[in-house]
Nucleic acid binder design. Structure first.
Lengths: 348, 348
DNA sequence: CATATTCATGCAAAGGTTTGCGCAAAGCAT
DNA sequence: ATGCTTTGCGCAAACCTTTGCATGAATATG
């Protein structure tokens, strides 16, 4: 076990020269004579020399590691974003260490600490739905440790971030419902302190207004972002005297839970109740009816977040670009009522 | 930028004592007088001292990092397994670095190299579907670098692994079909060189045999494990003169692609064609009809794989426990033909 | 009072790499 | 022959931690 890998020292000793010469030769430093350089490089190849990143990290004070904190790993949304990050991190020779907060503030704090302990160079974070205090991020800022938020951001902090235009998207969804004949449009929202909740709700209200609809308070429900609460929220909507003719779910967890619950009540989708969610490509197409949804450019979000991170590392200090990506409303079956079906053209 | 974190040296200088004293005091070494110990610990707390893992790694020759290679990250199956690994890695103070091979042998080799370069202490791997040469793993074994396989293993190598009993599961699925009145049971398999393909096919054949059915060669199709090929394979099955009355897909990708294609042909599931896949909990329940499936104990697989890994690190050398976990056939709607429905009891 | 014993602390090496600077030898010009 | 530059390489510091050994002082013992 633990067979030490070959080091510069090993090579130097074998050739009877100094370590520095070996180091330079390996980097084709012109200071070293060509013949010796070749000899050294050949031996290095044979001995399968690999520079020790620990030693380099110690010297250069960098670990080439990025800490990423997500609410969970098993959601396609996050794993897809992480894939995007990984792509650009790889190009830069960086690695990603993932920690999941499981939507818990405690675990999130713990993760920040742990990642810091293992000396990641910075953090890319999507805050948990419980996160309503931010000291653990303020410390990072004070110490000038690079930090980037994605999707769910702490708006009060001057930190680069990549999000989607939730207000615009939600407005469009509302109008889409309206154009499909819906008049009692319900919205299942998330915790008020999350930017995504706020933005999307705002868009929903704006949409109603633009369509000349009044907000019906019963149709705006708020719940935590998990399947259980979403199921309850949906059940509540379906038990109203006048049930909604459309439901808009703030994210995929909510949307699918709502779909299950509506089906359980034997209400046909979309004819009795139209349904739209914020989801990803894959899930939306696999369910029946195929779910109309606002799709996130997840890979791109991941790539951009990583890009911002590196910009942060390079520029240092007060750099706080806030990137807002557009979403796409992909109309599928779950929102197009039979009346309209003939005349609507199904995008994608 | 790059504000160096406080080191032992900083603390020592501030107190005008030696580094070693500080180091010892922080570990409550009785060698140091209680008063001084307290003074040192207090300062360390104020200065927010965190030991530098790079320095320790260099000293102890360990990085506390595990490399994990998966075919892809965005499949719930893998991300869920990784969650399990993370759980036990965390307990041991280890971190996980993920690399995805994208089902490509080239990328897999590259990942092995990259992870080795960053000095992970060992690897936990699910091989790509293309992987049919194993030098990159043999090197690891020769150098006694811990290696654990999960799900898809290289059977010719003496390496600890955790898999599921695919043969048993496939046999049960076949019998389940039979008991539901199916007689033309098709199976969409994966590349022959993968252990999972081999095992499950074997189970399928055994199941046919036990039910007194003969193998109909047309009903056994093989394809690569991606949605496109699975769609084609299904299409081929549906274009036979005598189409199957049941289809069994080797994994979730295949199963969902098959479902989409069957729906496209307007063939009712399960009445015309019963369908069963190897999938995870979540997806199976969200589709309609809910998919009967062999579910993997993904979290447990992850945990066990990590456990094996640590055992590997501790015991070193010739340790090659091969763990085989049981699966569960969860009967849902997609496989229970109307005839039988009344008498069948729906598990879960 | 001198030596042995204890106690508290510091020194230094090791782990691997990079790099500014120093040093020696050779080449060239004066 | 002397002085200067060039060439080619080694020394040593720095990054941070742990730990065996040495050092020094103070106390206890003979």
């Amino acid at each position: 076990m633990k067979k030490r890998l070959t080091s510069l020292k090993d090579l130097a000793e074998e050739l009877g020269i100094s370590i520095s010469t070996v180091s330079r030769a390996l980097k084709n430093n012109p200071m070293i004579s060509p013949e010796l350089t070749i000899k050294i490089q050949e031996l290095a190849a044979i001995k399968n020399y690999i520079p020790n990143p620990l030693a380099m990290g110690l010297l250069k004070q960098q670990t080439k590691m990025i800490g990423v904190i997500v609410p969970d790993l098993v959601t396609h949304f996050y794993s897809s974003i992480i894939s995007g990050m990984e792509e650009v991190a790889k190009e830069k020779g960086y690695y990603i260490i993932i920690a999941s907060s499981n939507e818990s503030l405690e675990k999130e704090k713990e993760s920040v600490n742990n990642l810091l302990k293992s000396r990641v160079e910075g953090l890319i974070v999507c805050i948990s739905q419980q996160t309503n205090s931010f000291e653990h991020f303020e410390i990072l800022i004070k110490n000038e440790i690079p930090l980037v938020f994605f999707d769910r951001v702490v708006e009060s902090l001057e930190v680069p971030s990549v999000t989607v235009d939730g207000a615009e998207a939600a407005k469009n969804v509302t109008r889409h419902f309206y154009e499909n004949g819906c008049r009692r449009i319900a919205y299942i929202s998330g915790p008020e302190h999350l930017n995504i909740s706020k933005n999307r709700k705002e868009g929903y209200l704006k949409g109603l207004q633009e369509c000349g609809l009044k907000l019906i308070p019963d149709l705006l429900v708020e719940c935590n972002l998990n399947a259980e609460e979403a199921t309850l929220a949906t059940r509540k909507l379906l038990s109203l005297n006048q049930i909604p003719d459309a439901i808009f779910g703030i994210n995929d967890t909510i949307a699918f839970a709502a779909m299950k619950e509506i089906k359980k009540h034997k209400l046909p989708i979309p004819d009795d109740i139209a349904l739209v969610g914020f989801t990803d490509e894959f899930h939306s197409t696999v369910v029946e009816p195929a779910l109309t949804s606002v799709t996130h450019p997840t890979l791109q979000m991941g790539r951009e977040a990583a890009r911002l991170f590196f910009e942060c590392i390079e520029k240092g200090k007060s750099f706080a670009e806030k990137l807002i990506l557009p979403t796409k409303l992909v109309v599928r079956e779950s929102s197009v009522k039979r009346l309209q079906k003939k005349t609507m053209q199904n995008v994608q």
